[in-house]
Design a protein around this nucleic acid. Structure first.
Length: 289
RNA sequence: GUGGGUGUAGCGUAGUUGGUUAACGCGCCAGUUUGUGGCACUGGAGAUCAUGGGUUCGAAUCCCUUCAUCCACC
């Protein structure tokens, strides 16, 4: 893998999650039924690796099942064991290990012994990085943090630790506290598309009427292109008018907000001050500590 | 000027053999969104049914007045 340029990931394009009747899981793989025309599409660890190799992303994820919340112990166990078997098959089918990092995904739902089992078995595969999957799927925040803090220390210290699907500022800070190195999420761009900005003072739903004549930037403390050039009122106008520029500007801002947040997190880690920063942030951002 | 049509929420419409809280889309207002497909999902507010009068137990619906608007003719 190369670490000297922006890293491209597969963006979770092959997750197996919450598709209900449109999805049939077997040991061999997963059959998806298109909701558009009913056509069937079969994915296996091998076929997914072939696609990932063709795409050429720097980081590619093993084909796994993200179990929904809540799930029984028995189902979670069987699913986790299958995900581990799939990871082995992915590794065997991976044709570009020299320039594409195949990460394993630790499953096990909200059962600690299953998390431990999953981590150990995947670490045995000696993959270049590991992810925590299957949390941030609708569970209470307490349970999220509990499993996060239990699982992260099980992961190799000398390899990237990736938490999948986390995007709110508070969860990102909690992830950093737990020892996570990287996250990815649809949230910043999804809420941008629906007219919402993340700021150092909490969410700003800029599409709301209260910003109609607000000629200040989305976030006064932000140094992004959007905040340096556009007002809330104008962005609101663009969003309301269905003008693509509006959600582009919001996406630019939200992504910058998160990278800025992580820059700050790194500084606080160096200063050994992350926990008090978390508390300070919660107060300012509007969460209960 | 004559004949005919039309007037229902901000906009576009549905609803008339007269019968309980007048429907829908868009817009508007708000909430949701955590392993993305670009604009989604869930709620909510808003109409003295152009106007004045009449018939009737009861009128958006039937009759007349006025106004507005559209079409044709002059």
């Amino acid at each position: 893998m190369r670490w000297d340029r922006p890293i491209l990931t597969d963006s979770g394009g092959f997750q197996v999650f919450s598709l209900g009747d449109l999805r049939t899981i077997s040991e061999e793989g997963v059959e998806f039924k298109s909701h558009l025309d009913g056509s069937k599409h079969f994915f296996s660890p091998e076929s997914v690796m072939e696609i990932e190799n063709d795409l050429g992303a720097d980081i590619i994820m093993a084909f796994d099942e993200c179990v929904e919340y809540p799930a029984t112990y028995e189902y979670t166990k069987q699913s986790m064991e299958r995900t581990t078997r799939w990871a082995k098959r992915c590794k065997a089918a991976h044709k570009r290990p020299e320039d594409q990092g195949l990460f394993g995904i630790i499953q096990g739902g909200f059962y600690k012994d299953l998390r431990e089992r999953s981590a150990k078995d995947l670490i045995d595969l000696d993959l270049p990085g590991y992810a925590i999957g299957g949390i941030s799927v609708g569970e209470p925040k307490k349970e999220f943090i509990d499993i996060l803090q239990y699982t992260a220390p099980l992961m190799p210290k000398n390899k990237p630790r990736y938490l999948m699907g986390v995007g709110t500022p508070d969860y990102l800070i909690e992830a950093a506290i737990a020892g996570i190195d990287m996250c990815d999420c649809v949230l910043p761009t999804r809420i941008a598309r629906n007219g919402t900005a993340m700021t150092w003072n909490g969410k700003v739903v800029v599409r709301n009427a209260t910003y109609e004549r607000d000629f200040t930037p989305l976030d006064a403390q932000c140094d992004c292109y959007t905040c340096k050039n556009y007002t809330r009122a104008y962005i609101r106008h663009l969003v309301k008018a269905n003008e693509i520029l509006g959600i582009r500007l919001l996406s630019i801002h939200n992504l910058r907000f998160l990278t800025k947040l992580m820059e700050r997190v790194k500084i606080e880690i160096e200063n050994d001050n992350l926990l008090s920063f978390r508390n300070e942030f919660y107060k300012q951002y509007g969460y209960d500590v």
